[in-house]
């Protein structure tokens, strides 16, 4: 009884994700475009939930929608972009600019649809029927992928040191 609902939720979330991502590109208002990006990330999180990866989904909301995009909106808010930027954006959205990416994205979309439609009988259903919870993610991260975790933390530390260096007070 629950499976058709989950499948339906997957397709609805996927359509919302597609629509909002397109709107990020074509919207000429910077803050509205960023809000569509937030919506796009939320719908991708929903896709994760329907695929049986709730931990990844909720991290997507916490990290991307709740922290990184907040900083994006924060910066755009401070820039105080007005009517001028909207006009500039509009002039940039010429057909010559968007036809190439749109065709390439359409190819990817066609592939995705093909994979979703054609292969269910081969066992590659979009919902694996297996839930990867927080504990499974943790066991994987601190087991086979320990080196990747260490490398990522070193990278973040380097970023932190660089940010500290850029942000410190200059001694005049």
């Amino acid at each position: 009884m629950i499976e058709p609902i989950v499948v339906g939720a997957f397709y609805v979330a996927a359509i919302v994700a597609l629509f909002s991502t397109v709107m990020v590109v074509v919207n000429t208002h910077p803050v509205h475009a960023l809000l569509y990006l937030v919506l796009s990330l939320l719908s991708v999180a929903m896709v994760f939930f329907t695929l049986g990866a709730p931990f990844a989904g909720v991290l997507e909301v916490i990290v991307y929608a709740g922290a990184i995009l907040v900083l994006f909106v924060f910066v755009v808010m401070m820039l105080n972009l007005g009517k001028q930027t909207v006009d500039q954006e509009r002039s940039w959205l010429k057909a010559s600019g968007w036809i190439g990416p749109a065709v390439l994205a359409a190819v990817l979309l066609a592939e995705l649809v093909l994979v979703l439609v054609v292969t269910p009988q081969n066992g590659f259903t979009p919902i694996s029927g297996q839930t990867v919870d927080a504990k499974a993610v943790g066991v994987a991260l601190y087991g086979p992928y320990l080196l990747a975790v260490e490398l990522a933390s070193t990278l973040l530390l380097a970023g932190l040191v660089a940010a500290y260096h850029l942000g410190r007070h200059q001694e005049s």
Binding site: P54, V58, I62, A65, G66, V70, A134
Partner: peptide, 17 residues
């Protein structure tokens, strides 16, 4: 919910908007 606390962090993060 099994991810209860994380769900709370998610909503708290979105409340900033």
């Amino acid at each position: 919910a099994d991810l209860g606390l994380l769900f709370f962090f998610a909503t708290a993060g979105l409340a900033v908007y």
